[in-house]
Design a protein around this nucleic acid. Structure first.
Length: 280
DNA sequence: TATGCGTGGGA
DNA sequence: TTCCCAAGCAT
């Protein structure tokens, strides 16, 4: 894996030597369920505009939502802003280097906390995302899976990490990269795979996934309607009238439910006179 | 633990 | 075209 990474790693900006905890945190949150290619330009904008947590915390949460662009799941922008505020209030404006402290930040879960601890601070933590889980599952266990990582998965990965913390961190990103480029979900590149001689999944005849993720539809769902509304708020000026927003979707009941849920989430704010804004 | 939460590209 | 899915999190 280390050799594969040395030979084939993509030169991504959040992997440059000496990148701090804040840029790494931004990249990790953006990369949650979002492909690298789409994250890249938005990440560069963010780190240039908000080089420290204090810079982001000083601006309105709505600015973060606007700058989020079309990455999807805009609640992540809100949580990143809330994390910046928490960093200023509780951590002196600095991203902490322990998993426990990182877990206390909004939008930071079991994966992201360990990714930041390992990649930004060189800590020896098991970093098990969907790529690492797929590689671990296939190569080591000989089965395929589409489940999400559990504590047991992290324990198993931890047992496989090299003792040296810095090497362990590189191994984690190496396995991730291998899962993203070779051992992919849909069409794994077993031809020429460097670990094929040791791969339990290959030896077993590449059995299909045991548990399959439930397909999540999109057309006609609240997610689509919410996306339309936030998109209009993002593209619009200071505020948008409810009447204009209402033209975005034919079903008034569903539209109202979605606007209300966006208000609950803090992604939309009524100004009391029939107009809606992003949070200030 | 199952579900909801955006978006767009490729198979 | 339709389906799948891409460095998850919160509830």
């Amino acid at each position: 894996m280390l050799q594969f990474y040395a030979d084939h790693r993509r030169d991504l900006p959040w992997r440059a030597p000496g990148v701090g905890g804040w840029p790494v945190l931004i990249s990790e949150v953006m990369l949650q369920q979002t492909p690298v290619a789409r994250v890249l330009p938005v990440y560069l904008e963010w780190v240039a505009r908000w080089p420290t947590p204090a810079d982001l915390a000083a601006d309105a949460p709505g600015d973060a939502v606007r700058a989020w662009g079309r990455l999807g799941y805009p609640r992540r922008a809100l949580r990143l802003h809330a994390a910046a505020t928490a960093l200023v209030q509780r951590f002196g404006g600095v991203v902490p280097d322990t998993v426990e402290e990182l877990l206390s930040l909004p939008g930071v879960g079991e994966y992201t906390a360990r990714a930041v601890a390992a990649f930004a601070f060189g800590r020896r933590e098991p970093v098990v995302d969907t790529n690492v889980l797929r590689v671990l599952s296939r190569v080591v266990r000989g089965v395929d899976t589409q489940a999400s990582a559990t504590a047991a998965d992290r324990r198993e990965m931890a047992a496989l990490l090299p003792q040296d913390a810095a090497v362990a961190a590189v191994l984690s990103v190496a396995v991730m990269e291998f899962g993203a480029l070779v051992c992919t979900s849909r069409s794994p590149g077993c031809d020429g795979c460097p670990v094929r001689p040791d791969c339990a999944w290959w030896a077993a005849g590449r059995p299909p996934p045991t548990v399959r993720r439930k397909a999540q539809g999109f057309a006609g769902t609240d997610r689509q309607v919410r996306g339309l509304i936030v998109g209009a708020l993002r593209a619009g000026g200071e505020s948008v009238s409810e009447d204009d927003l209402a033209t975005l979707w034919p079903d008034p009941v569903q539209w109202r439910r979605c606007l209300d849920s966006l208000i609950v989430d803090g992604l939309a704010v009524p100004d009391g006179s029939g107009r809606i804004t992003l949070p200030r």
